[in-house]
Write a protein that binds this DNA or RNA. Structure first.
Lengths: 324, 324
DNA sequence: CTCCCGGACTAGAACGTACTAGTTGATCTC
DNA sequence: GAGATCAACTAGTACGTTCTAGTCCGGGAG
């Protein structure tokens, strides 16, 4: 910046004014400074900027590197944050990189708030984090005071899937759940409630699953081994449903002729033209927008609340009427 | 930091010494400062640290949010960077977030080097970037001076796949390529060369594809429509191969009984227990380690070079002898 | 007893920016 | 023509660290 000022024969303060685009410089100098800055390849040092401003204008986001739905969310969060004059700083979670590591990286960056996607953080760690910084959980339930939540109504979402299948004539419906994953118990509950609502509590079948294709595949193989397999399967998420579909395809089982399959998330996987998965949409864009808005509200000092969005069923090609 | 110093009744300089763990403080104060810092929840402000030190010790990484292989690489880069005392700062590329945006975000963070995974940046933009900052391309070819390259030998990699299939008796082999994607032309060339090497230039079939499941699925459907379909397919990457496998499963086509399929990358997708895809491994860990090492060499002022790793064929369950 | 040495600690200047509180000179107003 | 007003610009401080160049004090050597 000093170089630019020297080259233009003005003070650094004026360069700063031009670079930030705030009023206080003549049109002539403005042009000249911008030209010189470009020639010198000057890019403002973000660290110094943030350091000077009391507010960093950065939202920290942790996400799971290999979850397509998280990828969708991250993309939308970038956009939503940008629209509100904020920047998103992402920190990945992976088998070899714990959530604690990811969160600490954000902390050191002095984010104004932390948005945790599908966090599996322990209660005490979460409490500690929330004491330091406005914290927002996306797609996970918690009763912890001081922690904001943005999620869609998982119980209702699975209900939509059940209603849809029952309307198609299905009665023997299985649910491959998410084991201990966030949202898993809500979805399991929603499944059982909805089935009971249709008087189908006796044919409701819940299987321990997981968030990966592998979990779905194992679950489906197990179900096919049953004396009387279900006619429809609701998976915990799209990845899990992918595994289910894959096993069915290999077994030569017609989908949806013999077995209907419903996923969850409406992630990239469900939208693939050759998959066309019926799924429950959490609407990544809406979720991301709500998360950013709520995070900003927390930063502004508002009390954390629980924002619950209504999911929507997206009917595609993996569900159909039960075969008579 | 000032709070900690006040609470401990010492200067901020001494707190700094303790926090950084450098010699210059008595054991007693060291303990006390650490305890107080912990109580107050003090975390050093990374921006101020980096600002003060001339070196930021940050490696910038751009990656594609929805490419499982990039996910694998990012995970390994985090680890490799950490081992060398560096930190990785990731910036995602997605349909709604261009590579230019991603790179600019890194620039403003004053990374010491940029590692671009599978970049599709234009030549002039790349040149401009490389002038500002040590730049390293991973899994992409370039002749640009001043730009480092770490990649595996794509031509040889596809050669391995061809050799493997030919050894199994296949003669009609198709390659669904990556269209304009980085590495695509090398792999196409490798395919044609290897086929010609076996005297099979007349049955070598190259199809325009892409990097997604959709591209693979479309390509495979097209191939199945042929009067004489190939007995084996080599896809541009694992995602593409996934689409191929999916279409085959739906058509009730036995893999590898009727058609063998080979992917590329050995990403998460290929390793799924129910998929067990034969694929060419670029060895994410090795590639990541080489990328970080080379990036550090560039930072140290060494000239950029092209590091070419040798790929390896991972035989799993999607390839088998051609049916007589 | 004096001198020196080394360990423990501190004052204060950087790092690159933003921002407050100015200064300057020209134009406007009556 | 004097004062007010305004646009255009600048000096200098602050942000939270690190780091250089010290200060201070106790004890061992001569």
């Amino acid at each position: 910046m000093a170089d630019v000022a020297r080259a233009a024969g003005i003070s650094t303060a004026l360069v700063s004014i031009v670079i930030r685009g705030v009023p206080g410089a003549s049109e002539a100098t403005r042009q000249r400074v911008l030209r010189i800055a470009d020639e010198l390849g000057y890019v403002p040092d973000q660290r110094a900027q943030k350091l000077r401003q009391s507010r960093s204008r950065v939202l920290g986001v942790t996400f799971e590197l290999q979850q397509p739905f998280h990828g969708d969310l991250v993309e939308k969060i970038y956009a939503a944050a940008g629209q509100h004059g904020y920047e998103a700083m992402i920190s990945a979670v992976a088998p070899s990189r714990s959530e604690t590591t990811a969160v600490n990286a954000l902390l050191r960056e002095r984010c104004e708030a932390a948005i945790l996607l599908g966090s599996e953080l322990e209660t005490d760690e979460l409490t500690r984090l929330a004491r330091r910084l406005p914290t927002l959980l996306v797609a996970r339930h918690t009763d912890l005071p001081g922690v904001g939540v943005v999620r869609s109504d998982d119980t209702a979402g699975i209900g939509l899937a059940v209603d849809h299948l029952v309307a198609l004539g299905h009665r023997r419906i299985a649910h491959i759940d998410g084991a201990g994953a966030p949202g898993s118990s809500d979805r399991r509950l929603g499944f059982l409630q909805a089935m009971a609502g249709h008087g189908l509590q006796d044919t409701a079948d819940v299987l321990a699953g997981g968030l990966t294709e592998t979990a779905g595949a194992e679950g489906m193989r197990y179900l096919l081994g049953r004396p009387v397999p279900p006619t429809a399967v609701i998976a915990f998420n799209d990845r899990c449903a992918s595994g289910v579909l894959d096993v069915l395809a290999r077994q030569g089982c017609d989908v949806p002729g013999e077995i209907s399959v419903v996923g969850y998330d409406d992630s990239r996987l469900a939208k693939l033209p050759h998959v066309q998965m019926t799924t429950v949409s959490q609407n990544a864009a809406e979720l991301a927008e709500a998360a950013v808005t709520h995070a900003l509200a927390l930063i502004a000092g508002r009390q954390p609340e629980e924002v619950v969005l209504t999911p929507r069923l997206v009917e595609r090609a993996t569900t159909g009427p039960v075969r008579p």
